[in-house]
Design a protein around this nucleic acid. Structure first.
Ligand SMILES: [Zn+2]
Ligand SMILES: [Zn+2]
Ligand SMILES: [Zn+2]
Ligand SMILES: [Zn+2]
Lengths: 130, 130
DNA sequence: TTACATAGTGTTATATTATAACAAACCTTA
DNA sequence: TAAGGTTTGTTATAATATAACACTATGTAA
């Protein structure tokens, strides 16, 4: 039986919580919400988050220190991420735009350097807040 | 005499330090380095950093919690920033590419939403580390 | 089965990053 | 001068993240 790429117990608990949330969740909010399920200390949360980020199941919104579930089957392990972030409410949407993705994935700087990964965060007002 | 948009004493001290640095600087590294100049506590550093970011003199590298001086006269108060980040050494370069800037500044999502601001971080290996 | 490697867990303590709150000093300009 | 904004200095504390260590579970291969 080869590796099924399944989640461990803590990873699954934490992924489920993030996946059900309509907002990005912060590490200590997660910790508070999973304490009843036996996860008691920050390292348990951060380790699960690290693994989930590595495997592309969730993404970190860097400008918020918060985490969202990946809504995009094409993320290729978080190598190419783009988000729309509302500056008024806490809303974050993952952008899944093939043209944008292609444009950025093939971007070369002036010295011809190609990059392995990018993260793009757009800021503005969401539909509700406009 | 109207506002010259000059920096205050603490802002100038901290900007000079960041501007001379070849690497992104973290807030507490900055604090340590300016203590001999009379800046003794974190809020003094963070207030100056906030102001410098607002006015576009420096940018925050979100994935590193570190700050670099703006090398680009066209940044328009940090509304459109892009960086090249080496995953091996600490090198960060501000990307100043008119086409990229235009492409992202005029980007609409599927619902036609335009954004006020973006921040893009590319990751890879710099010339030296390749 | 046994042995080994790898990944995951639980735990305590601590490091790092950032802000709250309040009083005082300093400019502008009316 | 008085009023308003911004900057400063200061103490304390909040919020975010990791180090280190002992232990357990699981997969792989002889
Ligand atoms: Zn994704
Ligand atoms: Zn909104
Ligand atoms: Zn800039
Ligand atoms: Zn490098």
């Amino acid at each position: 039986m080869h590796k099924e790429n399944n989640l461990s117990k803590n990873q699954q608990i934490i992924f489920d919580l993030i996946n059900k949330s309509s907002e990005p969740l912060k590490a200590y909010t997660i910790l508070f919400n999973v304490q009843k399920r036996g996860i008691k200390a920050p390292p348990q949360v951060y380790r699960a988050l690290d693994k989930l980020v590595q495997t592309g199941k969730i993404h970190k919104i860097e400008s918020k220190n918060a985490f969202v579930a990946c809504r995009n089957t094409n993320c290729e392990m978080s190598k190419a991420t783009a988000f729309s972030i509302c500056e008024s409410c806490e809303m974050v949407d993952e952008i899944s735009d093939a043209k944008l993705n292609k444009y950025l994935s093939s971007f070369n700087d002036k010295k011809g350097t190609k990059y392995k990964r990018f993260n793009l965060e757009f800021f503005g007002l969401c539909k509700k807040c406009k």
